[in-house]
Every structure is written in C-alpha cells, then in structure tokens.
C-alpha cells in the first residue's frame, strides 16, 4: 500500500505539499506530546472542545473512537499512537481539530486530538527541509517536511501514510 493511496482511495493534498506561488503555506499549528505539528489550514473545518468519545472495540489505537460532531459520526485520530508517544490525560487546553480529508468519491471528516491548538501561521518553503535520516525516532514516512519557525521545529505529518495501516481490512489489532 503506497503512502498516497489508502484502501484504494487517494488522499488528495496530503502527501504533496501545496506551497503557493511565493513558496508559502498557511497552516494551523498544534501541540501534541511536547512536539509541534501543523496541518494545512485549508483542511481544517473546525476546532472544538473535547466531545464524549465512544470507543470502538477492535479498532486500531490510532483511530480507536468515534464522536458525534454535529450529527455526524466522526472518527477520532490520536497521532500519539503513530509517533509512539505516551498516552496523556486530557487537560483544559485539549481540543479536537476537525479536518476534512478528500477521498476519491467522498469527504471524510477526521477529528485529530491536540493537547493545545496554537495558531494559524504562514510557513516558508525556504526554511523547510526533509526529515533527517538520523536523530529522529519516528518513522520517516510519517513526516512530509520539518519547518523551522522561530525557535521551533514544526512537523508536517503525512496523514495519508499515517492512516494507511488503519484502512487495513482486518482492522483488528493495530
């Protein structure tokens, strides 16, 4: 299964980064497990406070629960599972980032857990680089780019690659 195609669906705008003509990209940054992540601002539908979650027995830990988001059943993704981070209890600052992933013939809503949502910023391609092959303990395929912004390093995760194993038909385990 390639990183860009999950379960036969193509996740658009996820693997390749759509820098604009000036080499810039507007993103929403959020903290998770002491790291700072960013996803394209255009994918973000809404930021909501934590909702009561319903665990789905047998589902992979990455998408182990669903919530009722405005009448839709939305799976909750916890990127901690993908980046081998220790589970942490929610705080008053915890939020769900509801993102819209375009699949081939439908739009999938996905709620990403975040310890804290920061801000919408513009990243410059010039200050970005590929993930180094040493010094990073996470799977390289899960990261599209690392971007320096001030003193921070922001990770642009590859949601398509991260979610691909969860589309596996067996679904059990994970």
């Amino acid at each position: 299964m390639s990183a860009r195609s999950i379960g036969g669906w193509l996740v658009k705008g996820s693997a390749a980064i759509a820098w604009d003509a000036h080499g810039e990209l507007e993103v929403l940054t959020f903290d998770l497990g002491g790291e700072r992540f960013a996803i394209e601002a255009t994918l973000v539908r809404e930021i909501v406070e934590l909702l009561p979650e319903t665990a789905v027995p047998g589902a992979p830990a990455l998408v182990g629960a669903v919530v009722n988001h405005r009448g839709r059943i939305v799976p909750v993704a916890d990127l901690r599972a993908a980046f081998a981070m220790v589970a942490a209890p929610p705080t008053v600052e915890s939020r769900l980032v509801v993102a819209e992933l375009a699949l081939d013939d439908e739009t999938l809503l996905l709620a990403l857990r975040a310890d804290r949502v920061r801000e919408v910023v513009t990243l410059a391609e010039a200050s970005s680089g590929d993930a180094p092959s040493v010094g990073v303990r996470w799977p390289r395929a899960y990261m599209r780019r690392l971007v320096r912004s001030g003193d921070d390093v922001i990770v642009l995760p590859d949601l398509a690659a991260i979610l691909a194993p969860a589309f596996d038909d067996t679904g059990v385990g994970g």
């Binding site: 379960g7 839709r72 699949l103 999938l108």
Partner: peptide, 19 residues
C-alpha cells in the same frame, strides 16, 4: 443508522452507529 468511517467498516462487529 449512520455509516461508519472507512477506518471502522472493516472491523465487522458493527454495521453502523447511531446517536
């Protein structure tokens, strides 16, 4: 009845979800 996301369709124990 509401359909489950593709992540949970494959599990098999559940045919859908409801609110």
């Amino acid at each position: 009845v509401k359909a489950l996301s593709p992540f949970h369709r494959g599990i098999g124990s559940f045919s859908g979800a409801t609110i």
